[in-house]
Nucleic acid binder design. Structure first.
Lengths: 343, 343
DNA sequence: AAAATCAACACAACCGGTTGCTTTAAATAT
DNA sequence: ATATTTAAAGCAACCGGTTGTGTTGATTTT
């Protein structure tokens, strides 16, 4: 069992009769090392199969070239695209991404945040867990000058970078679109809590759009789902379809819910979009698979990831702890497809 | 700008008039530290807000409690579920997961493997990039006793752990199912290379099933896609539907392709499953959304991730470098839904 | 030719835990 | 009362790069 010890810069230094500091500097093309030596070092590195130990470098320099991402789950299309966007931007700058899933649990989020801090990530990007109300476990990053970006589901009162869409405007646009298609009884399928001001903002947009078109708020047309799942969507849809006065339009705050509504409606023989126009939210892959194709609101996941990563990269080692951090708004668009196209 | 230096065990040692070694041991409930001292230390840790530095610990101990995952992308449902499975198992044992995407590029894979090695991960789980032919960049892990698990798309000749499904059997089962539904001209939509023996194995199963049912291999019914995308699926499907003798069944080696085939067929007015039975592969979410629902082969992503992680955890620090590593096979099942149900 | 300048590299402390070995003091044995 | 064992904690090297400060010999300046 030969011990396969790692090659270190000490081994290279010994072989070339140089100091470790010279090796270290040569590897980063430091100007005070001669061309000749740099070449010699790099050749030896190649031959001996040296691989730098980022732990040692990180420990000494107190930085790790790693961005931590703390999100509810990676299996949702929106979030996996978000990560992908982060990852591509990070990789381009030589940064790695370490991903942790809170599974929407507050307890896990707290513990994982501590773990991220322990591993001395250079920056953190997070989308809050559904359960989360108190966000003080993120304070450690700000206090220690580790750039922190909240994305999509963000806390309201926390002075750090935020990358979001204008959920209010998006909700307004979605509803307005249905109104323009001639809908007069528009239902809204929403979810979860008022925290994270995601669904609640969309709902606010929905309500204001109605008001601006002189339509009343009808409470029985607004259904609040416990969880954003297909099953809950079907349950809520059935509730709507059982009403004496059925809605002629649905704005669902998520594509899964909208798809569920479409299929539930189809089972009942309700014609889409003639009798019922439906618009979703997110532009998930399923929105293009469902028949009829689902109209939806675009949610620029990859762009949001990219923007978040770039903010992190720009603010690493900036030492502007106490400044007011900007909020980045990304655009959403109404994507009109078959499920809502009446005219 | 107050310098917010991290609290270290030195700070705690100083405050309590103890040695750093005592602090370190107290934090891990070492038997040679008294209960009283342990309590005192933990209280101080709490009060002073000490957070351990895993870099330092990792450097000293040459281990990091981190599992590296190197896969083509995380946006495919199969792969994001795989990661999720890995992550849950890892988190349970106090391990973190660092994820890197090769984007199916060989060059990226090589560079990311080096990066994973640099960060001294305790284990590596990888699914090969499409482009990859040579896998010698993974040798460094095995040589240094870092457990390596290949999952799903695995190399043939590399003595390390592998977690896979029996793609041959799955391809056979899928085809057999179509045969049992009365299909006699079964097409096969496959993809990519012969390397990674993923699609090629499924195809072999397809061919053997035909043979066992005394049906000939018809080359015009076997279409090889360049990439596994909706568009390529549509193109291939149209090619099939343009044939003089159209197929009456399609076994598509992926749900996206199958869904694409369904929608292409529907556009042409081909009745599914009456005129054309279709079965996919993976059991992606879209398979339940498409109308008619897609029959498919289950691909136990989360289980495969869990199994991979458990193998890593079991083999960390085992020092059995030269042993023959086992292959883990997970089960697949034929999931019969509407798209293939004729009887 | 002596002094000043500079290129190129060496020295050694440092980052923050971990761990084998030693020391100290209290408890037990003789 | 002395020797022996044991519990509890201290000492210091170590992991592998990084970096501020020195050192040396060669080149340039006056």
């Amino acid at each position: 069992m030969e011990e396969n010890k790692d090659i270190t810069i000490y081994d290279i230094a010994k072989k070339l009769n140089l100091a470790t500091s010279t090796i270290s500097r040569a590897l980063k093309d430091h100007p005070s090392i001669s061309e000749k030596t740099i070449k010699k070092v790099k050749k030896a590195v190649e031959e001996m199969g040296y691989v730098p130990n980022t732990l040692a470098a990180g420990l000494r320099g107190n930085k790790t070239n790693t961005i931590g991402v703390l999100i509810p789950t990676i299996t949702q299309p929106f979030l996996s695209s978000l990560i992908s966007g982060i990852e591509i931007a990070a990789q381009k700058s030589g940064y790695n991404v370490i991903i942790m899933q809170s599974h929407d649990s507050y307890e896990d989020e707290v513990s994982l945040a501590k773990s991220l801090y322990s591993s001395r990530v250079s920056g953190v990007i997070s989308s809050l867990a559904m359960e989360t109300r108190d966000t003080s476990h993120f304070q450690q990053f700000v206090s220690n000058n580790i750039p922190l970006v909240f994305v999509d589901r963000v806390p309201k009162n926390f002075n750090t970078f935020r990358v979001i869409i204008d959920n209010y405007a998006a909700g307004y646009k979605a509803t307005k679109h249905l109104l323009e298609q001639g809908c007069t009884r528009i239902a809204h399928l929403t979810a979860g809590s008022e925290f994270g001001n995601l669904y609640s903002e969309r709902k606010r947009g929905y309500l204001d759009a109605l008001k601006d078109h002189n339509l009343p708020q009808i409470d029985e047309l607004i259904v609040n789902l416990k969880t954003v799942t297909y099953e809950e969507g079907a349950k809520a849809s059935n509730k709507l379809f059982d009403l004496e006065l059925r809605p002629d339009g649905i704005f669902a705050s998520g594509d899964i819910i909208a798809v569920s509504a479409i299929q539930t409606a189809k089972k009942r023989g309700i014609k889409i979009p003639e009798e019922l126009a439906i618009i979703g939210f997110n532009n998930d892959p399923i929105s293009q698979i469902i028949d009829p194709n689902l109209s939806t609101i675009t949610h620029p996941a990859a762009k949001m990831g990219k923007a978040s990563a770039e903010i992190i990269l720009k603010n690493i080692k900036s030492n502007k702890k106490d400044e007011v951090k900007e909020i980045t708004f990304l655009n959403t668009e109404v994507l009109v497809r078959e499920s809502s196209k009446r005219i």
